Computed example of a mutant assay.
Amino acid sequence: MNSTVNGSEFGSVVVGVDGSEPARRAALWAAAEADRRGSPLHIVYAADTEGRDLYISADTIERGRGAGSDLLDETAAAVARLHPGLHVTTEFSLSAPATSLHRSAARRGTIVVGNRGLGGFNSLLLGSVGLKVAAGAKTPVVVVRGTGDVTTGVVLAAVRDEHDLDSVRHAAREARIRKSELRLLHIWNILESVGSVVTMLDDVEEIAGEQVRHLTAVTDRIRDEFPDLTVEADAEKSVSVSGALVEASHHADLLVMGGRRSHDAMGPTLGWHTHSLLHHAHCPVLLIPRTADRNGSES
């Protein structure tokens, strides 16, 4: 079956700006992405002054509004120079950044954020706003990482099992609009598979075969649905799933994965592997929302 890709299928692209250099790079990446998709771009500045009237003076709020409006205009102008045909809208929001972006994306948009904003410490690889946006989103989220100086022509999709089919489909659509190759990568950690028990060689081979079957099932579906796409599939063993994916991200323009979450803590939190990729990947990471499975396993 042939799949079609158009702006309405992807939805709009929503990007947050705050005056930082990572946010500016994210805005330009979001503009290029919207242009590829044929989708509109919506640029949001969140002042985070809602409900703070008793603590912030009217003059301070007004200065912030002016600075935010100027930043929106400057960003929109920079985007227009690079993508003159792109439909761009802007929004000045009084709400908190994560709340503003989630609301603007609604149910159909893709949210784009930089890897660190003005309020973050330099030691933090991903700022608190980015983490809140990713952890609480019900729509796709892109955290823009890497320099983008080199184009590899590869979209990388992390595959754990058949439940990742939706995120891999999204990766296939991304690969097609980029005219890129799609690489499906399944990383399995034998220590996680067998625990601390010493197993026989036959047990290890059986586990390896099961891992490959998961990947093959997804690969066959994607090749059937996207016959015009070059699809490569690899299964690798590693002592660190997230470490192997970080290394693979060196050779990709975009890493797509199902962003599993755990609700065991106070509110939604990102899974361990997801969290690691958002902090350390060498290319932009696109998360497709997915909750933890029944046994609580997550990535």
Results as ranks from 00 to 15, higher is better:
V197T: 14
I61N: 05
E181C: 07
T110S: 11
H279D: 02
L254T: 05
E181G: 03
P97V: 06
V204F: 04
A77I: 02
P84K: 06
S104C: 12
L118N: 06
G271L: 01
E298I: 07
H279R: 13
D48F: 08
V198D: 08
A34F: 03
D161H: 04
H273V: 15
A175C: 09
E232R: 15
I43A: 05
S276I: 01
V142A: 07
V285R: 01
A46G: 11
A34D: 06
V44Y: 08
A172Y: 03
T230L: 13
H250S: 14
T75Q: 06
S276E: 14
A252K: 08
V168R: 04
R173T: 00
L94D: 14
V88P: 07
T291P: 15
A46P: 13
I190F: 10
V212P: 00
A76F: 09
G109R: 07
S262H: 15
L28K: 04
R160W: 00
R223N: 06
H163A: 13
A76S: 13
G209Y: 00
L185R: 11
H87A: 15
A67H: 10
R24N: 09
V194I: 15
V14I: 15
T4Y: 14
A76N: 02
E247I: 10
R108P: 00
D224K: 14
A106K: 09
R176W: 03
T274H: 02
N2Q: 09
H251V: 01
R178W: 11
L286Y: 04
P40S: 13
A80G: 12
K237S: 10
I190V: 11
L101A: 04
V5D: 09
T230R: 15
S12A: 14
Q211C: 05
T269N: 04
G117Q: 09
T147H: 14
T139I: 08
V197Q: 07
I56N: 00
L201T: 12
A175L: 10
D166E: 13
S3P: 06
S128H: 07
H275D: 13
D53W: 12
S276D: 11
A23G: 13
G64P: 01
E91V: 02
D73W: 01
Y45G: 00
V79S: 00
G146V: 08
T75V: 14
A235D: 09
S167N: 05
V141L: 10
G127F: 02
G146H: 13
H250C: 09
P97H: 02
H83W: 04
A244P: 12
I61A: 12
